[in-house]
């Protein structure tokens, strides 16, 4: 039987990484994810893995690049301002087709902002973040257990598609304690599955890991290859949770911690006899466009209500998904404010 224990989201993500076979972790202190870095400092050496406290986020993400280029499973974690610094390396990882897991326990911005939970890095995570034409897979857990589970999925998807994958949590999820069911250690991917890795050119031609394409047409050709992969991911990897969609007139859309509050709002509306439902995107990229499409094909009279700890970032993707076929309303707060059930009910 699997053990059930009480853990914070930060610690759960750390333990999941250890159990998912993370070989290398580099991080830099930043609130509200410090427990995660400290957890890795303790756990990684216990398992004979590598932990480094880097001199900066710039260095941490480049250390990941080296360890990932070596064919290893790698993770870094940070919070919003630190993730901004990591965008340099994330773009290089995307350009060099290197898998990595990057955890953002979001805090308030812009600038130094504050250390309160926030969801204002949605644009940065889902629309590229760094320079160039690329995407990261973005996974949004809404509970400690899901944060744990998505680490395993995140590593798998990063390896499968050879790209950086982001877990987009927030300070509430990172700091909150919940019951967690631990799973067994999963086997590490064998080096044979990464023939591109830099392991020394013994009995093979040298490998080069790079994102630089100077010859004419080279970069365009490479970008077309990436885009083809992104289209495949968009088709195959959309994930979401929903409730009451069959008989809903109004569908709330929220992700991460905010979805828990939205769920309470849906329950409250149902108690009042209102036909409310919920769509909770789990993958923010690829955004689960198909569920909106399917719903709008079946139901002519429906409206959507998006709620976020931002002033409307995921809202733009919901509007794209709905594409003018139904009304889309919004309520959000950011900078430390968290929309409450009462506020949501009042706005609907």
């Amino acid at each position: 039987m699997n053990t059930k224990i009480l853990m914070t989201g930060n610690e759960a993500i750390g333990e999941a990484a250890v159990r998912a076979g993370c070989d290398f972790y580099a991080g830099y202190p930043i609130t509200p994810q410090n427990e995660l870095t400290a957890y890795m400092a303790k756990r990684m050496p216990q398992e004979g893995r590598i932990f480094i406290q880097a001199e900066s986020e710039l260095a941490a993400i480049s250390m990941l690049m080296g360890a990932s280029a070596s064919g290893k499973r790698v993770m870094t974690t940070s919070s919003s301002p630190g993730i901004s610094l990591k965008q340099e390396g994330i773009s290089y990882l995307a350009g060099a087709e290197l898998p990595a897991l990057i955890v953002n326990i979001m805090r308030g911005g812009p600038g130094l902002g504050n250390i309160a939970p926030s969801q204002s890095d949605y644009f940065q995570a889902t629309k590229g973040g760094g320079h160039g034409d690329y995407h990261c897979i973005v996974l949004a857990p809404s509970s400690v257990q899901e944060g744990y589970d998505l680490v395993f999925l995140g590593f798998e998807l990063a390896d499968k598609y050879r790209l950086p994958t982001i877990i987009l949590g927030d300070g509430m999820l990172g700091q909150m304690m919940e019951a967690l069911e631990l799973s067994a250690f999963s086997s590490q991917p064998s080096a044979g599955k990464k023939p591109w890795a830099l392991t020394g050119c013994k009995a093979r031609k040298p490998n080069i890991v790079k994102s630089f394409y100077m010859h004419e047409g080279g970069l365009e050709e490479f970008n077309k290859k990436l885009q083809k992969r992104y289209r495949q991911i968009e088709k195959q990897e959309q994930r979401f949770e929903n409730s009451h969609l069959d008989d809903s007139d109004i569908v709330l859309v929220a992700y991460g911690s905010m979805a828990r509050i939205a769920r309470s709002a849906v329950d409250a509306l149902r108690k009042k006899g209102k036909k409310a439902g919920l769509i909770r995107p789990v993958t923010l990229w690829p955004f689960p466009f198909d569920i909106f499409d399917n719903l709008l094909r079946k139901k002519k009279k429906i409206k959507f209500f998006v709620t976020e700890m931002s002033y409307g970032q995921m809202l733009e993707d919901v509007r794209l998904a709905v594409n003018g076929r139904a009304p889309v309303d919004f309520f959000g707060r950011s900078g430390g404010g968290i929309p409450t059930v009462e506020e949501i009910l009042e706005k609907i």
Partner: peptide, 25 residues
């Protein structure tokens, strides 16, 4: 020019990349 395994690094980050490679290998 070099006929052995090579890794790119972002401008200025070569030693961080090397740290990552050397620690795991």
């Amino acid at each position: 020019y070099w006929d052995f395994d090579c890794c790119e690094a972002a401008h200025g980050r070569a030693m961080a990349v090397a740290t990552g490679i050397k620690r795991v290998q």
